[in-house]
């Protein structure tokens, strides 16, 4: 889902850059206000963690493999804004060193996977978690796990839809066909992302439940 250079027309990529800079600027400001030095090494090591998980491929079916995006996972532990900085750092390193995503399209990639896939994903997680708690009238581990799974699925699908809308708006793809193709493929990929996120969260809840109660930014 990392869009390379040349796929977005100038008005689109400039627009996406402006949105991305505004969001990252806000996230940086928010992070700067809180205890900066404690979080920075943590965020850096977690960025390396996200990077490493994206390298671990799990074979899915007949030769294809999927890897984690990890945005919602990072947001559940760090909070949406710190996680968006972590994700943006990962995308910058991927764009610069692995040619994974372009420079002009970096703004769009940060928006798709860093904002839609992380900040929006986090608020979906929080909303579902609250709704479940209201229905069952208690704080349950199951609620957290289910909310994490659904939010991760939504994040992947939202990011893929945004990606195909941006490329179509640049006149490369026809909109409807690409939207159908991208979203249906990513609805399946998102399912795996959701299941893996659920497994990760339930494991952490068993082993180090305190990690879910870190200060969120």
């Amino acid at each position: 889902m990392h869009i390379p250079d040349g796929f977005l027309s100038p008005p689109i990529f400039i627009g996406m850059w402006i949105i991305a800079i505004l969001i990252i600027g806000y996230a940086v400001k928010k992070t700067n206000k809180k205890v900066l030095d404690k979080h920075v090494p943590l965020m850096g090591v977690l960025a390396a963690f996200i990077f490493a998980t994206q390298m671990l491929n799990t074979p899915v079916a007949s030769g294809t493999s999927g890897h984690m995006l990890g945005g919602v996972l990072a947001a559940i532990f760090l909070g949406p804004f710190a996680a968006s900085i972590v994700m943006a750092s990962v995308f910058i390193v991927q764009a610069l060193f692995f040619a994974d995503g372009g420079i002009t399209s970096l703004g769009a990639n940060i928006f798709n996977m860093g904002l839609l896939g992380t900040i929006v994903g986090y608020f979906i997680y929080k909303g579902i978690r609250k709704a479940i708690e209201r229905v069952t009238r208690k704080e349950s581990k199951k609620g957290i796990i289910i909310a994490a799974g659904i939010a991760s699925w939504c994040a992947v699908v939202l990011a893929s839809a945004a990606c195909s809308i941006e490329i179509s708006a640049s006149g490369i793809f026809p909109l409807t066909e690409s939207l159908i193709a991208m979203v249906s493929v990513h609805a399946v990929i998102g399912l795996i992302e959701g299941l893996i996120t659920m497994a990760v969260v339930s494991f952490v809840l068993k082993v180090r439940p305190d990690l879910l109660n870190l200060e969120k930014i």
């Binding site: 943590l42 390396a48 963690f49 998980t53 671990l56 497994a199 990760v200 494991f203 082993v207």
Partner: peptide, 12 residues
């Protein structure tokens, strides 16, 4: 998922 969770805890 467990592998990633272990990796996460160790990284943290």
């Amino acid at each position: 998922g467990n592998i990633i969770a272990v990796l996460f805890i160790r990284s943290y």
